[in-house]
Amino acid sequence: MKPEELRAALDPSAVDWVDEAMRQVWADPGAIARLFPRAARACGRGPIKDGWTADEAARALLLAALPADRVAVEVDRLYRYGDASEKRAVLRALPLLPIGDAGVPLLHDAIRTNDTRLVGAALGAYAAHLDAATWRQAVLKCVFMGLPLSIVDRLDERADEELRVMLAGLAEERAAAGRPMAADATGLLHRLAGTALRKEA
Protein backbone atom coordinates (compact mmCIF):
# COMPACT_ATOMS: atom_id res chain seq x y z
CA MET A 1 0.00 0.00 0.00
CA LYS A 2 1.33 3.40 -1.00
CA PRO A 3 0.32 6.58 0.87
CA GLU A 4 -1.86 7.71 -2.10
CA GLU A 5 -3.75 4.41 -1.99
CA LEU A 6 -4.36 4.75 1.76
CA ARG A 7 -5.64 8.29 1.28
CA ALA A 8 -7.94 7.18 -1.55
CA ALA A 9 -9.46 4.47 0.66
CA LEU A 10 -10.53 6.93 3.40
CA ASP A 11 -13.98 8.54 3.72
CA PRO A 12 -14.21 12.08 2.28
CA SER A 13 -14.51 13.62 5.77
CA ALA A 14 -11.44 11.70 6.93
CA VAL A 15 -9.55 12.85 3.83
CA ASP A 16 -10.41 16.47 4.70
CA TRP A 17 -9.07 16.02 8.23
CA VAL A 18 -5.94 14.22 7.05
CA ASP A 19 -5.18 16.82 4.35
CA GLU A 20 -5.45 19.63 6.89
CA ALA A 21 -3.41 17.69 9.46
CA MET A 22 -0.70 16.94 6.87
CA ARG A 23 -0.51 20.66 6.03
CA GLN A 24 0.06 21.35 9.73
CA VAL A 25 2.81 18.73 9.89
CA TRP A 26 4.52 20.19 6.80
CA ALA A 27 4.44 23.64 8.40
CA ASP A 28 5.49 22.40 11.86
CA PRO A 29 6.65 18.77 12.21
CA GLY A 30 6.25 18.95 16.01
CA ALA A 31 2.47 19.31 15.54
CA ILE A 32 2.32 15.57 14.88
CA ALA A 33 2.57 14.87 18.63
CA ARG A 34 -0.95 16.24 19.16
CA LEU A 35 -2.45 15.22 15.81
CA PHE A 36 -1.33 11.59 15.90
CA PRO A 37 -3.46 10.50 18.92
CA ARG A 38 -6.46 12.50 17.59
CA ALA A 39 -6.54 10.70 14.24
CA ALA A 40 -8.82 7.88 15.41
CA ARG A 41 -11.40 10.29 16.87
CA ALA A 42 -11.33 12.30 13.62
CA CYS A 43 -11.19 9.50 11.03
CA GLY A 44 -12.78 6.47 12.72
CA ARG A 45 -11.39 3.01 13.45
CA GLY A 46 -13.19 0.82 10.92
CA PRO A 47 -11.50 -1.38 8.29
CA ILE A 48 -10.84 0.29 4.93
CA LYS A 49 -8.63 -1.82 2.66
CA ASP A 50 -6.14 -4.71 2.71
CA GLY A 51 -6.25 -5.11 6.48
CA TRP A 52 -5.76 -1.38 7.18
CA THR A 53 -8.12 0.55 9.46
CA ALA A 54 -9.01 4.21 8.95
CA ASP A 55 -7.01 5.38 11.99
CA GLU A 56 -3.93 3.40 10.93
CA ALA A 57 -4.10 4.87 7.44
CA ALA A 58 -4.57 8.42 8.71
CA ARG A 59 -1.62 8.01 11.09
CA ALA A 60 0.58 6.53 8.34
CA LEU A 61 -0.23 9.56 6.15
CA LEU A 62 0.78 11.93 8.96
CA LEU A 63 4.10 10.10 9.29
CA ALA A 64 4.59 10.23 5.53
CA ALA A 65 4.15 14.03 5.70
CA LEU A 66 7.20 14.45 7.98
CA PRO A 67 10.35 15.93 6.45
CA ALA A 68 12.92 13.15 5.85
CA ASP A 69 15.33 14.41 8.51
CA ARG A 70 12.62 14.31 11.21
CA VAL A 71 11.08 10.91 10.45
CA ALA A 72 13.33 8.74 12.59
CA VAL A 73 13.13 10.90 15.72
CA GLU A 74 9.36 11.50 15.53
CA VAL A 75 8.62 7.82 14.78
CA ASP A 76 10.63 6.85 17.80
CA ARG A 77 8.86 9.33 20.08
CA LEU A 78 5.35 8.58 18.78
CA TYR A 79 5.92 4.88 19.32
CA ARG A 80 7.41 5.47 22.78
CA TYR A 81 4.41 7.50 23.92
CA GLY A 82 1.80 5.73 21.81
CA ASP A 83 -1.16 3.75 23.07
CA ALA A 84 -1.48 0.28 21.56
CA SER A 85 -3.34 1.53 18.45
CA GLU A 86 -0.80 4.27 17.82
CA LYS A 87 2.09 1.82 18.25
CA ARG A 88 0.43 -0.52 15.79
CA ALA A 89 -0.02 2.31 13.28
CA VAL A 90 3.67 3.23 13.56
CA LEU A 91 4.70 -0.39 12.97
CA ARG A 92 2.45 -0.72 9.93
CA ALA A 93 3.70 2.56 8.46
CA LEU A 94 7.42 1.66 8.71
CA PRO A 95 7.72 0.16 5.20
CA LEU A 96 6.29 3.40 3.73
CA LEU A 97 8.84 5.69 5.39
CA PRO A 98 12.36 6.80 4.38
CA ILE A 99 13.82 5.43 7.56
CA GLY A 100 16.24 2.65 6.53
CA ASP A 101 16.67 0.21 9.40
CA ALA A 102 16.18 2.85 12.13
CA GLY A 103 12.79 1.29 13.01
CA VAL A 104 14.22 -2.10 13.92
CA PRO A 105 14.33 -1.40 17.70
CA LEU A 106 10.57 -0.76 17.54
CA LEU A 107 10.02 -4.21 16.03
CA HIS A 108 12.07 -5.73 18.84
CA ASP A 109 9.93 -3.88 21.39
CA ALA A 110 6.69 -5.00 19.74
CA ILE A 111 7.80 -8.62 19.54
CA ARG A 112 8.66 -8.59 23.26
CA THR A 113 5.08 -7.63 24.17
CA ASN A 114 2.27 -10.06 24.77
CA ASP A 115 -0.14 -7.98 22.71
CA THR A 116 -1.11 -9.88 19.56
CA ARG A 117 -1.92 -6.67 17.70
CA LEU A 118 1.67 -5.46 18.14
CA VAL A 119 3.39 -8.79 17.52
CA GLY A 120 1.31 -9.21 14.34
CA ALA A 121 2.09 -5.71 13.09
CA ALA A 122 5.83 -6.32 13.58
CA LEU A 123 5.87 -9.14 11.03
CA GLY A 124 4.85 -7.17 7.93
CA ALA A 125 7.12 -6.11 5.06
CA TYR A 126 9.43 -4.12 7.36
CA ALA A 127 10.40 -7.38 9.12
CA ALA A 128 12.79 -7.84 6.18
CA HIS A 129 15.16 -5.79 8.39
CA LEU A 130 15.02 -8.38 11.20
CA ASP A 131 17.88 -10.82 11.56
CA ALA A 132 16.99 -14.49 10.99
CA ALA A 133 17.13 -15.55 14.66
CA THR A 134 14.76 -12.78 15.82
CA TRP A 135 12.43 -13.40 12.91
CA ARG A 136 12.20 -17.15 13.63
CA GLN A 137 11.46 -16.51 17.32
CA ALA A 138 8.75 -14.05 16.32
CA VAL A 139 7.14 -16.54 13.92
CA LEU A 140 7.18 -19.20 16.63
CA LYS A 141 5.64 -16.70 19.05
CA CYS A 142 2.80 -16.16 16.56
CA VAL A 143 2.11 -19.90 16.66
CA PHE A 144 2.15 -19.82 20.49
CA MET A 145 -0.22 -16.85 20.59
CA GLY A 146 -2.60 -18.33 18.04
CA LEU A 147 -1.94 -15.63 15.45
CA PRO A 148 -2.61 -16.65 11.85
CA LEU A 149 0.66 -17.09 9.94
CA SER A 150 -0.90 -15.28 6.97
CA ILE A 151 0.16 -12.03 8.69
CA VAL A 152 3.83 -12.93 8.27
CA ASP A 153 5.31 -11.28 5.19
CA ARG A 154 7.30 -13.62 2.86
CA LEU A 155 6.78 -16.56 5.23
CA ASP A 156 7.69 -19.41 2.89
CA GLU A 157 10.58 -17.48 1.37
CA ARG A 158 12.27 -16.92 4.75
CA ALA A 159 11.27 -20.11 6.57
CA ASP A 160 14.37 -22.30 6.85
CA GLU A 161 15.64 -25.56 8.30
CA GLU A 162 16.20 -23.96 11.70
CA LEU A 163 12.54 -22.85 11.84
CA ARG A 164 11.51 -26.37 10.82
CA VAL A 165 13.42 -27.80 13.79
CA MET A 166 11.77 -25.29 16.14
CA LEU A 167 8.28 -26.03 14.78
CA ALA A 168 8.86 -29.77 14.94
CA GLY A 169 9.87 -29.40 18.60
CA LEU A 170 6.72 -27.46 19.34
CA ALA A 171 4.58 -30.00 17.48
CA GLU A 172 6.07 -32.75 19.60
CA GLU A 173 5.39 -30.90 22.86
CA ARG A 174 1.84 -30.17 21.76
CA ALA A 175 1.28 -33.80 20.84
CA ALA A 176 2.59 -34.90 24.25
CA ALA A 177 0.17 -32.48 25.93
CA GLY A 178 -2.71 -33.68 23.78
CA ARG A 179 -3.17 -30.21 22.28
CA PRO A 180 -3.22 -29.64 18.55
CA MET A 181 -0.97 -27.16 16.79
CA ALA A 182 -2.76 -24.67 14.52
CA ALA A 183 -3.39 -25.99 10.99
CA ASP A 184 -1.39 -23.24 9.31
CA ALA A 185 1.66 -24.00 11.48
CA THR A 186 1.33 -27.72 10.80
CA GLY A 187 1.05 -26.91 7.09
CA LEU A 188 4.24 -24.86 7.22
CA LEU A 189 6.02 -27.65 9.08
CA HIS A 190 4.96 -30.14 6.40
CA ARG A 191 6.11 -27.86 3.59
CA LEU A 192 9.48 -27.37 5.29
CA ALA A 193 9.83 -31.11 5.96
CA GLY A 194 9.03 -31.81 2.30
CA THR A 195 11.77 -29.40 1.22
CA ALA A 196 14.22 -31.06 3.59
CA LEU A 197 13.36 -34.53 2.19
CA ARG A 198 13.77 -33.34 -1.41
CA LYS A 199 17.18 -31.93 -0.51
CA GLU A 200 18.25 -35.31 0.95
CA ALA A 201 17.05 -37.23 -2.10
Binding site: G51, N114, T116, R117, G120, M145, G146, L147, P148
Partner: peptide, 12 residues
Protein backbone atom coordinates in the same frame (compact mmCIF):
# COMPACT_ATOMS: atom_id res chain seq x y z
CA UNK B 1 -9.70 -11.13 18.98
CA UNK B 2 -7.10 -10.37 16.43
CA UNK B 3 -8.21 -11.34 12.94
CA UNK B 4 -10.49 -14.00 14.32
CA UNK B 5 -8.04 -15.61 16.72
CA UNK B 6 -8.82 -15.61 20.39
CA UNK B 7 -5.83 -14.73 22.50
CA UNK B 8 -6.91 -15.87 25.93
CA UNK B 9 -3.76 -17.91 26.34
CA UNK B 10 -0.88 -15.85 27.62
CA UNK B 11 2.67 -16.70 28.49
CA UNK B 12 4.54 -16.75 25.22
Amino acid sequence: SFEGNSILRGGS
